[in-house]
Computed example of a mutant assay.
Amino acid sequence: MHLDVAAAVALGDEGGLAAVSLRKVAARLDVGPMRLYGYISTKEELFDLMVDEVHAEILPEEQVGDWREVLRIRAHRTRQAVLRHQWLADLIGGRPPLGPNALAVTEATLSALDGLADLDTALRAAETVSAYFTGAIRREIANLRAEYATGLSKRDWQRASGPHLKRMLATGRFPALAKAVYDGTEIDAEASFATGLDWVLDAVAAKLTRPPA
Rank of each mutant, 00 (worst) to 15 (best):
D114I: 01
T106C: 11
R79P: 04
G65C: 01
R68Y: 11
L169K: 00
S161N: 14
E147N: 09
A117E: 06
Q80Y: 12
M168F: 06
E14R: 01
R145G: 07
A160W: 00
K154R: 14
N101P: 01
A19W: 00
E147T: 10
A189F: 00
A104V: 10
A122S: 12
F193D: 02
K179Q: 12
A142L: 04
H76D: 09
A180C: 04
V5E: 08
G16C: 04
Y39E: 11
A56Y: 00
G94L: 09
D4I: 02
A191I: 03
A81L: 12
G172S: 06
E69G: 07
T78M: 12
A108Q: 00
L103T: 11
L116V: 14
R72H: 08
T42Y: 03
A149W: 01
R210M: 10
A142M: 11
R84V: 04
D183T: 07
K207P: 02
A203W: 00
G184I: 09
G196C: 03
H2T: 12
T106H: 08
L208V: 05
T128E: 03
E127Y: 00
P163E: 06
A203Q: 03
L123D: 10
I58T: 11
E107L: 15
K24F: 08
R35T: 15
L91I: 03
Y182K: 10
V70E: 04
P60D: 07
Q158L: 12
V20N: 07
D188I: 02
V31A: 05
A136I: 08
E53R: 15
A180W: 03
G38H: 13
I137H: 00
L22K: 07
V5P: 08
L208A: 08
R68N: 05
Y39R: 15
R173Q: 14
A108L: 15
R35N: 10
V181D: 03
Y148R: 14
L119F: 12
A18N: 09
A189P: 06
P211W: 08
P60W: 00
Q158T: 13
R74Y: 14
W87R: 01
H85D: 07
R74L: 14
A205Q: 14
A112E: 03
L116I: 12
A125M: 00
A131H: 04
R79N: 04
Q158E: 15
G12N: 02
P33L: 11
G196R: 00
R155D: 14
F133Y: 13
M1G: 14
G12D: 04
L49V: 02
G65L: 04
A203S: 10
G16Q: 02
L49R: 14
G135I: 05
D188R: 05
P97Q: 05
A191F: 01
Q80L: 12
H164T: 15
V31Q: 11
L46W: 06
I92Y: 01
L144I: 08
G94D: 10
K24V: 01
I58M: 13
R72Q: 07
G196L: 07
A131E: 07
A178H: 07
A18I: 09
L46V: 02
R72V: 05
